[in-house]
Design a binder for these strands. Structure first.
Length: 853
RNA sequence: GGACGAUUAGCUCAGUUGGUUAGAGUGCUACGUUGACAUCGUAGAGGUCACAGGUUCGAGUCCUGUAUUGUCCACCA
């Protein structure tokens, strides 16, 4: 027997270990159809947050559903080394211990990083366990493990040989705090206050000057030209002349270039090829020198004269002072502009000329765009609109900077000797070859995740079996970083999409709708929620409180109400179990079932059908709503109450059957409590998680019984309304005045009426008691109050009459509309006609009553 | 500047391929300790579905525009 109250702490104890030790999480049953999801590998930098809890809950729901439904379901776990993020955390920890990380030997540092990884990996596994995730740990992978590193090398070498990876000097985004290159996706633009400094660039041997505005005056030391638009009437005669670079007093040419927009500012722009991507292009077109003026750590270098060694922002301040003094500053204009920050260190990113490795994206992206045109082979997004994001990124794509000046990651498989470059698994034969010091962008390895985890580049059995994956689940914020890249690498190396479907969810927000972030301090730790309300409540909340692709507000009140729902389920189960003491399960015999037994079986059957349909479409919010309604309203409020009036072995069997089916359908959402209850029921197998998912059963269609019980419910409800309105408690009697062919509704269900309404059924009433009639299309029921005078309520009759009349006229109007009759579906019209007829009957009865009064 | 969302009950959100009387949770009101559950039960109040047009026999749902709001991208010398 169950405790009186649901206790999530007790219920969740020990179950995960049992499942895992029993091998229920393991895949590989070749007799079944394969189904595969790979987990988006969390970073080994810290704790899982609510977003992870949401993401993984969705996956666990899918995988548990598929497993129960007869698939060989593989959910492959793993983690990401998270290059910059982890290195920053490890460095910070070392600094706290007074160790300067960059003074360490690389190998020594890596040892510390691996220790860190082990510690955090352990934490993450514990959190996965608390979340109840049915991951196949026998196949767990890490992005830096041997197999995945081989895959990374293989891809790098092959893309290099195809000419799709190259090394070159380009303007990249430089993070001066972490001192590494970044890809464009790792730069976050923020609106900030800044200034436009309008400077005088005097024209050579002239008193005239060009007015040039800049937000970054300190880059002036790297100016090697100024540009005007070639057709700009104001300036075109100046092209070919020189200007004097302020402060430096160096001559630089005026060039004509389309990059200069005559409409913007003064139409003259300074050109700093080493510190601006557009200027870099201009420099290429005009063969300009590239002068670097900033050091990797963000200080000014030897090309900046007295400013050498000064931080770039201090330099800006002091330089502006100097310009002012020399009357070279025309004005300072306050503006708000967007400034790039490093996603990880939040340092202001410096566009920087540097030699890096790049992936040539155009051919790879074109292949994605081409493939998305083919319905049979494309990645199908759920909801479909997210495909546009993939397409958009593949259209605007630029070459991907993949080298990072870090230690934590896959070291680039390139070797240098003088001017020679060799790319391969190991150093070429001969003396003097030095391996590239840099590592690859973290996303370079995660891009291979759907197949590298399955053993690729070896053609393993599991690769053949589980690739492409069936569905990938992730948030929309990570489509550009990850989804795009998995798709093009999958197509490039396996000639096939990495996954058939891509289920996209939104972001978790706090109660006020703000993003959860460390800086706001509004993050909620899922482990705290679990301690307070249980994993099952958290999971059900996460899975059912938003539509696919929409954001989700975390609301503790809703988790609490989910807890209440579980408690309701718990108590309903308790009721069922109480009645199953000394009971031997008997087979359900359709002949012996009561109408209410048939009613609930029919309802259950319909719920199974609709739940399956929405599970297939990942519409878990709908599934949740349907199950909630069925359990609370149909099962608890009605069927359990009805069953109390007729508790025979058949009814007990039905209670048990319905409960088991409910538990099974809830299990993917609430693994723990469903297991707890299930195992206490008679005739069960070792675990609900390996039981069969409910199926629609044609035998359980009982249309006429459903109609009859629906009418019983209608009568009872209407009487309850009167009871409440008149506040008559249970002090009344009931007389069955239904039409002859409907009298059985009450006569056959005497006990139901007496118990649910707490009244007594009588054949006739004596005159002294006040009576009230309640009218249905199929007759009426008389309530007889005991010892209480109730005035005949003509008013409410009139109200009812009015309502009916307006409804009838609306329907009549509708049904006289030829267009409606001709074009609306037959069933809709028929239903409308039936309702009209019923209302007319009812109206006639009421009219008569009013007339008689 | 471009793209994509959102706008439905006091609050948080659902609403399947258009079907005519729009749902849930929570909050609020009244009544109720009945042997599963007061973390409950029975009932109630509460919405011209942001606005304006259009398509249609019929629009919360489809189209166009507007407003408010959010996210992403681009620009930002």
């Amino acid at each position: 027997m169950l405790e009186k109250k649901y206790n999530h702490l007790e219920v969740e104890k020990g179950k995960y270990e049992k499942w895992n030790n029993s091998g229920y999480f393991e895949s590989g049953d070749l007799s079944k159809k394969p189904f595969c999801i790979v987990i988006p590998p969390p970073n080994v930098t810290g704790k899982l947050h609510l977003g992870h809890a949401w993401d993984t809950t969705l996956q666990d729901i899918i995988i548990r559903y598929k497993r129960m439904d007869g698939y060989d379901a593989l959910w492959l776990p793993g983690m990401d080394h998270a290059g910059i993020a982890t290195q920053a955390r490890v460095d910070a920890k070392l600094r706290e211990q007074g160790i300067m990380p960059r003074d360490m030997d690389r190998e020594e540092w890596l040892k510390c990083a691996w220790d860190w990884k082990e510690e955090y990996a352990k934490n993450i596994r514990e959190q996965w366990a608390k979340l109840g995730l049915s991951l196949d740990y026998t196949k767990e992978r890490f992005t830096l493990d041997k197999g995945l590193s081989d895959a990374v090398n293989h891809v790098f070498i092959e893309l290099y040989n195809k000419g799709l990876i190259y090394r070159g000097e380009r303007i990249i985004n430089w993070d001066p705090a972490q001192m590494t290159a970044l890809s464009n996706e790792e730069v976050i633009h923020k609106e900030e206050n800044g200034a436009f400094y309008h400077l005088k660039y005097y024209i050579e041997s002239s008193d005239e000057y060009l007015e040039i505005a800049t937000t970054r005056p300190e880059t002036m030391f790297g100016d090697t030209a100024v540009a005007v638009h070639p057709t700009d009437e104001r300036y075109k005669d100046l092209i070919g002349k020189n200007v004097i670079l302020p402060v430096v007093n160096k001559l630089i040419p005026i060039v004509g270039d389309e990059h200069a927009d005559p409409e913007f500012g003064t139409g003259v722009v300074k050109i700093t090829p080493a510190h601006d991507p557009n200027d870099f292009e201009v420099g290429n077109r005009h063969n300009l020198e590239r002068v670097i003026v900033i050091n990797p750590d963000g200080t000014m270098n030897e090309n900046t004269g007295v400013y050498n060694g000064l931080d770039r922002f201090d330099c800006r301040e002091k330089l502006v002072e100097e310009l002012k003094e020399k009357d070279l500053l025309i004005k300072t204009e306050e503006i708000i502009h967007s400034v790039g920050h490093s996603e990880r260190s939040d340092a202001i990113v410096e566009p920087y000329l540097s030699k890096q490795w790049f992936v040539k994206m155009r051919p790879l992206a074109d292949r994605v765009l081409e493939n998305q045109k083919n319905k049979e082979t494309k990645v199908n997004f759920v909801p479909p609109r997210f495909e546009k994001i993939l397409n958009h990124w593949m259209e605007i794509t630029y070459d991907w900077c993949i080298s990072r000046q870090l230690w934590w990651g896959h070291r680039i498989p390139a070797w240098y000797k003088d001017d020679e470059i060799y790319v391969g698994d190991s150093a070429p034969i001969g003396e003097g070859w030095v391996q590239d010091n840099d590592v690859l962008d973290t996303w370079f390895s995660s891009a291979l995740w759907p197949f590298s985890t399955l053993g690729w580049p070896e053609n393993t059995e599991i690769l053949k079996r589980y690739y492409p994956n069936d569905v990938l689940v992730t948030g929309y914020d990570i489509i550009p970083f990850w989804v795009c890249r998995m798709v093009f690498q999958g197509l490039e190396f396996l000639d096939e999409r990495p996954f058939k479907e891509c289920l996209i969810h939104g972001l978790i927000r706090d109660k006020e709708g703000r993003k959860m972030s460390k800086s706001l301090g509004n993050g909620v730790d899922p482990m705290d929620v679990i301690d307070n309300y249980g994993t099952d409540a958290l999971r059900f909340f996460l899975a059912t409180n938003s539509a696919p692709g929409q954001d989700l507000r975390y609301d503790e009140e809703k988790v609490k109400s989910t807890w209440n729902f579980i408690n309701k389920l718990w108590n309903a189960s308790r009721f069922v179990m109480m009645n199953l003491e000394d009971y031997e399960e008997t087979e359900i015999n359709l002949e012996e079932l009561s109408s209410s037994d048939k009613w609930i079986l029919d309802k259950l059957n319909k719920v199974i059908k609709v739940v399956r349909r929405h599970m297939e479409k990942y519409e878990f919010n709908v599934v949740g709503q349907k199950l909630y309604g069925f359990i609370w309203n149909d099962f608890c409020d009605w069927y359990i109450e009805l069953s109390k009036t007729n508790m025979n072995d058949q009814t007990k069997s039905v209670l048990l059957l319905v409960l088991k089916n409910i538990l099974k359908m809830l299990h993917p959402f609430m693994p723990y409590v469903t297991e707890e209850i299930y195992l206490k029921l008679p005739n069960t197998i070792a675990s609900i998680m390996i039981s069969d998912y409910p199926q629609y059963n044609k035998e359980y269609e009982f249309t006429s019984d459903v109609n009859n019980i629906n009418k019983v419910i209608e009568i009872i409800t209407k009487i309850r309304i009167i009871k409440n309105e008149k506040n008559i408690g249970s002090n009344f009697m009931l007389v069955n005045k239904l039409n002859e062919n409907h009298k059985f509704l009450i006569n056959d269900n005497r006990v139901i009426f007496e118990k649910l309404l707490k009244c007594s059924l009588v054949d006739e009433i004596d005159n002294e008691k006040t009576t009230e009639e309640i009218t249905f299309t199929y007759g009426e029921v008389i309530i007889a109050y005991i010892g209480k005078e109730v005035e005949e309520d003509i008013e409410s009759l009139k109200q009812e009459q009015e309502k009916l009349m307006s409804s009838i006229s609306r329907r009549q109007k509708l049904l006289s509309n030829i267009g409606y009759i001709n074009r609306a579906p037959e069933k809709i019209v028929k239903d409308e006609k039936n309702k009209l007829e019923e209302e007319i009957i009812l109206l006639n009865i009421i009219n008569e009553k009013i007339a008689n009064n």
